[in-house]
Design a protein around this nucleic acid. Structure first.
Lengths: 194, 194
DNA sequence: ATATTAAACTAATGCTATTAGTTTTTGTTT
DNA sequence: AAACAAAAACTAATAGCATTAGTTTAATAT
């Protein structure tokens, strides 16, 4: 029954291509329809509405980040894996800044999609944290801390929120990871003294 | 010359009131004009455009957060001041979540306003960091780390990005601050050994 | 061949920010 | 007090947005 080989997945493909080509700002259902050579209204045969589509795009981007992280930590362990993961995350955001802004935009409206998109990115982090001798609940906490730090850093960095002082962004990011590493090792030590 | 006592400041006042009453989502120039009892087009006698207005609102919110932080750290020093500041920041975001979302939205478009809004919030943080014996450039780095962590945490928390695991948000936040405190104290120690 | 149905279409709605041009009001100057 | 200048309101229009209802097309299944 499909006149073109159109599906939700191919629509998301096109959307991501569009965002990377024209920028997050230029993205709209009109523009997406033009790219797919259909009329805007026809999109509603495949998607619920804009919010759902955005969520699906965000989920896809989450998956891309997850894969990038997995590739980065492959064969590594301990602090090396930690640093590799954090660097990979930031590099992805820098190289696909318009895609990352989709995730930024989603966070304004709390919905199930945001939860799902974030869920994608948790797995590699938990894998990295498994190298540290901490409890299961500690792992849940540190996973949050890592994600908060990485996301907060990137949003500030790319919005100009860090421009006020003349010190290198790379160095700050490195210090932040170092700090988390220190915290993790301290937690390990405390368990040894119990 | 003003027919009503309208100015850029009173418009921002009304905008903030509107956002707190109706939510960030319902905010528009139409709604703002209705509240001020003028026609939407008349707003352009006072503002450049939507982006500039949003920036001005963000700047104002930045000032509110700054004041909240200053109040929170008054009379405190060291780690007590650090914890008080971080708690005040998060509490403000929770109690004025729709205002905080304005800042979240601004970060998608890099502009001078974002830089200015963030600039407002730096002062109290630098004040807190002055209690630690670290170098000037270290202070610049730690200021960024603190802001990244706080902002990243709040965006995730309020968007549902932390829902995956059954551990308390408060505890995670506390651990994050503790970690930064540990990092600061470690930096102090390293200077003593030089 | 016929019936079914997904997926396209057209057309319209009501929202958004924004611009141009006009009128009203107010404060200043003659 | 009368005239002028300018700020700030207005009306009217535009182009874009997401979205809905109703209709037609085209491909598949019977």
């Amino acid at each position: 029954m499909p006149r073109k080989g159109l599906s939700k997945e191919t629509i998301i493909d096109a959307a991501i291509e569009l965002i990377e080509e024209q920028g997050n700002h230029a993205f709209s259902l009109n523009e997406l329809a033009r790219k797919l050579e259909i009329k805007p209204a026809s999109l509603y045969n495949h998607i619920e509405n804009m919010e759902e589509l955005t969520g699906a795009i965000g989920y896809r981007i989450g998956g891309m980040i997850k894969q990038t992280e997995l590739d980065a930590i492959a064969g590594k362990s301990g602090d090396a894996a930690l640093f590799a993961l954090c660097d990979a995350y930031r590099t992805f955001a820098q190289e696909h800044i318009d895609l990352y802004k989709v995730i930024m935009g989603m966070q304004k409206d709390k919905n199930a999609c945001t939860e799902a998109a974030c869920g994608e990115m948790i797995n590699p982090i938990m894998q990295v944290l498994s190298n540290y001798k901490i409890t299961a609940s500690e792992k849940m906490h540190w996973q949050r801390i890592l994600r908060a730090m990485m996301h907060g850093f990137i949003t500030h960095e790319c919005a100009g929120g860090f421009r006020h002082f003349p010190v290198a962004y790379n160095e700050t990011y490195h210090m932040a990871i170092e700090t988390i590493s220190l915290g993790l090792h301290t937690a390990e030590k405390e368990h040894r003294n119990e």
